[in-house]
Nucleic acid binder design. Structure first.
Lengths: 392, 392
DNA sequence: ATACTTTGTTTAATGAATAAACTAAATAGG
DNA sequence: CCTATTTAGTTTATTCATTAAACAAAGTAT
C-alpha cells in the first residue's frame, strides 16, 4: 500500500519547487520560499539537488529590491527532449520538443495505404530521424508519446482503430523494444486534451473537456488537472452520445450518435448533396473552406447547421461535466469563423441559466500541433515525475 | 500552498491505520503492519493515538496463529453520531447514524405545502429530536448532512430547486447558526452516490455513476473514489442530455432531455394516457406497481418503454465515463423487476463491444436510505478527516 | 522442558522540515 | 562617505516523523 514517509514529503516539495521554477522562472530562491510557504532552507536544498540533476540552472544575479541581489534560477529546458507523434488517418506528424514543450524539430509523412507495414515503417524512420537530430543533452530523448485515433487500452495495446490497420497491435511494446525509450500510446483526444491543458488554451483550467472533431468525435477529459480514462481506459466516447433516439445506426452499435451529425464526415456527406459540388468527385475540407470564404450560400448554410449540431453536443457535455473550459480541436477547428456563432447561439438557447457565463469555450490554440504536443507533454511529465499529470 | 511536511505524513498514515481497522476490524496491530507495509512501531504509535482519540478500542485477545495472542482492535462506531437528511419533494426523512453509517434512529414527516416555513420547521424539529435521541458519546453529533433536489452551490446555498420553496436559501448557514454543528448540503444525486459508494452496492467501485431517477433525473459522479462536482458545483445534470434533438422543450431550456422520456414524471404522464387509468384522478407509483404486479399488459408495455429509454441514457453515461459501476436509485428503482430487462437489452444493442461485460449495472442497495445515508456519510467523512471522500 | 513463533514495545538511527542565527551584499538616507 | 536597514542565501541546532534492530511477553509445537 502507498504509505506516507519522508521520501514522499521530499518528492512533493521537490516537485513544487521545480514547478515553481518552470512556471515563474527566472525566479530566486527567496521568491520561491515566499510563494510556496516552504522554508528558505528547504528551498535551497531542493534547488541544489535540482541543479545537480541538471534540471535547473543559475542564470546570474537579478534586480535588487532593496537588499542583496537574488540569484535567478531557470528551468533547464534542454536537459532532455521528447518525441510527440500525431498518428493521423492519412499522415503522421512527429515533433521533437524540449522539456518545456517547445518544438525544436518537426517532420511529417503522408500515409497512402494505411497498412501496418507502411505505418510502422514511417513511425520507425520518423523516430530514428528525430532521435538523430536531437541535440546533445544530459538525458537525451526521455520518451516517445503517440496520439492515435481509436481505442487504446491502458497497456498501450490498440484495441480498435478505424481506417488504420493497427488493430490489436501493441505499438508501445514494439517501439520500446526497438528504441529502448519509454513509450506511451493514447487516444488522440486524450493527448490533445493534455496538450491544451499543459501548453495551450487550457493552461489555467483544472476541469476541461477537449472535443476532437475530426472524422469522428472524441473527447479528452481532464478532471482536477488529471486525465480521466475510466475503468478500462475507454472513457470519453462522447461522439457516440445519442442525440436522436431513433436516428441512423452508427458503426459503434448505437443509434443517432452525435458524430453522425456534427463531425467532419457529416460535413463531407452533406456537402456531397449540395448542387455546387455535384460534379466534384471527391470533396475535401479545402474545397469547403474556399467556398465558405467566397461566401457560397449553400456551404455557409451547411456550416451553420453543422455548427448547431456541434452546439447540441456541447450542451450535453456542459450539463454533464460543468467544466471550466471547453476546447474544440482537430480538423473542425479550421471552420471556427463559420461554426462559432451557431454554436454559441445554441448554447444560449439550450443551456440552463445556472451555467451563465461560467463556461469558457474556445478553439484549440495549438492548432495542428495539439495532439503531437500533448503526446510529448505526456512523456515529459512522466519523466519529470511531478504530479502535473496523472492518469486516473 | 499545500506543501509536504511531517504532519502530512502522519495524517496519511493515521488515516490508513484507521481505515484498515474500519474495514477489517477486529484486526491486530501486527496484521495492520503486514497489510499496509507500515512498520510495526508506526502502527503501534498510530493505534495509541487513535485509542486516545476514542476512535478505536481494544477488544481483547484473538486467536494465536502459533505465537503470542494478538490484541484485537475495532473501530469505535459509537464515538460520535451523524444526522443524514433526505429532503424529498413531499417528505423529509432524517436518520441518526453511528460513525459506521448504521442507522440508530429514524424519523420522517410528510410535507404538504412545500413552503419555506413548513420545511424549515420540519427540519428544525427533526434535527432537534434526533440530537436529543443521540446516545452519550465522546464527540456527540459530529455533523448534519442534507441531500436536496435541485442545484446547490459549493457554499451550501440552494440555487434552484423545483417544487420546494427554498430557492436562494442558505440552508447550511441557517442550520449551523442554530445548531452549531457542521452542516453540508448537496444535491440528492451526489449524496446518493456517496451513500452507495461508501455503504452500498458501490463499495468497491472507484469510478461510479449513481443515477437518481425520480421526478427528474440527476447523476452523482464518483471519480477515483471522489465526488466530482464540476467548476461551479453543478455537474451531473445528465437528466438534461438531449436524446431527441428536436424534442419537446424542457424547463431547463434544452430540448428532448432524457428525463422527459425516462423519469417518474414521464412514467406518470404516459400512464395517464392509458385506457385503464382514464378514470383515476391522480395516478401514483403505487397504482402503477400494483397493476404491474397484476400483469396489466398496458402498464407492462409502458414500463418496458420507460426501461428502454432509461437504457438509452445509460448508454450515453457509459460512453462518457466508462465507469466501474452504474447504480440506479431513487423512486424508479422500485420497478427494477420490470425495467431491468429492457435496459439490459438496450445496452446489449447499443453499446460498443469494447465495453463488453465491464460495466456493472445494479439498483441501489440502500433503497430509500441511499440519500440520507450518503448525506450522513458525507459529514462523517469530513469529521474523520480521512481522505476517504474528497470533493473535487 | 525446550525450541520456535508471533506480538508488541523499547531504543537508537535516519532523514526530512524548520526556526534562529549568521554571513553576504545590496540600498537608503543623512 | 558612512551607517542603518533590507534582502538573499547558508549554517546550525532542533523537532518530529518512520524505521530497523533488539528485546520482552506470551503463546505453540514437539
Amino acid at each position: 500500500m502507498k504509505t506516507g514517509d519522508l521520501t514522499l514529503v521530499k518528492q512533493i516539495n521537490k516537485s513544487i519547487v521545480l514547478n515553481e521554477i518552470e512556471k515563474k522562472g527566472p525566479i530566486s530562491r527567496a521568491q520561491i520560499s515566499k510563494d510556496t510557504g516552504l522554508n528558505k532552507t528547504t528551498v535551497s536544498t531542493m534547488v541544489s539537488e535540482l541543479i545537480e540533476d541538471k534540471l535547473v540552472n543559475e542564470l546570474g544575479q537579478g534586480q535588487s529590491s532593496g537588499g542583496r541581489k537574488p540569484v535567478m534560477l531557470y528551468f533547464n529546458t534542454h536537459a532532455g527532449y521528447a518525441i510527440g507523434i500525431d498518428l493521423g488517418v492519412n499522415y503522421i506528424l512527429a515533433v521533437l520538443t524540449d522539456l518545456s514543450g517547445e518544438i525544436v524539430e518537426e517532420e511529417s509523412v503522408p500515409l497512402s495505404d494505411q497498412s501496418a507495414e507502411e505505418i510502422m515503417q514511417a513511425l520507425r524512420s520518423l523516430i530514428r530521424s528525430l532521435i538523430e537530430k536531437s541535440p546533445d543533452s544530459p538525458y537525451g530523448v526521455v520518451g516517445i508519446g503517440i496520439g492515435a485515433p481509436g481505442i487504446v487500452d491502458p497497456e498501450g495495446l490498440i484495441l480498435f482503430t478505424p481506417y488504420l490497420d493497427l488493430n490489436q497491435v501493441n505499438l508501445k511494446q514494439i517501439l520500446e523494444d526497438e528504441f529502448n525509450i519509454p513509450t506511451l500510446i493514447d487516444n488522440e483526444a486524450n493527448t490533445g486534451a493534455l496538450g491544451e491543458h499543459l501548453y495551450g488554451a487550457g493552461k489555467n483550467a483544472m476541469n476541461l473537456i477537449y472535443v476532437s472533431v475530426g472524422i469522428g468525435i472524441g473527447t479528452g477529459i481532464i478532471i482536477n488537472g488529471q486525465l480521466y480514462k475510466g475503468a478500462t481506459g475507454i472513457s470519453g466516447e462522447m461522439g457516440h452520445l445519442t442525440i436522436e433516439v431513433n436516428g441512423r445506426k452508427c458503426s459503434c452499435g448505437n443509434r443517432g450518435c452525435w458524430e453522425l451529425y456534427a463531425s467532419e464526415s457529416a460535413l463531407l456527406t452533406e456537402a456531397k448533396k449540395l448542387e455546387y459540388f455535384k460534379d466534384t468527385s471527391s470533396i475535401t475540407l479545402d474545397h469547403i473552406e474556399s467556398e465558405a470564404k467566397k461566401g457560397n450560400k449553400d456551404v455557409l448554410r451547411l456550416l451553420h447547421t453543422i455548427g448547431e449540431y456541434n452546439g447540441v453536443g456541447l450542451v450535453n457535455i456542459i450539463n454533464t461535466f460543468n467544466p471550466d473550459m471547453l476546447i474544440i480541436g482537430n480538423r473542425m477547428a479550421r471552420f471556427e469563423n463559420w461554426i462559432m456563432n451557431p454554436i454559441k447561439s445554441v448554447l444560449d438557447d439550450r443551456l440552463s441559466p445556472f451555467h451563465g457565463n461560467a463556461v469558457n469555450l474556445t478553439v484549440s490554440s495549438l492548432g495542428k500541433y495539439s495532439n503531437a504536443l500533448g503526446a510529448s507533454a505526456f512523456v515529459i511529465s512522466k519523466f519529470l515525475d511531478i504530479n502535473r499529470v496523472k492518469v486516473i
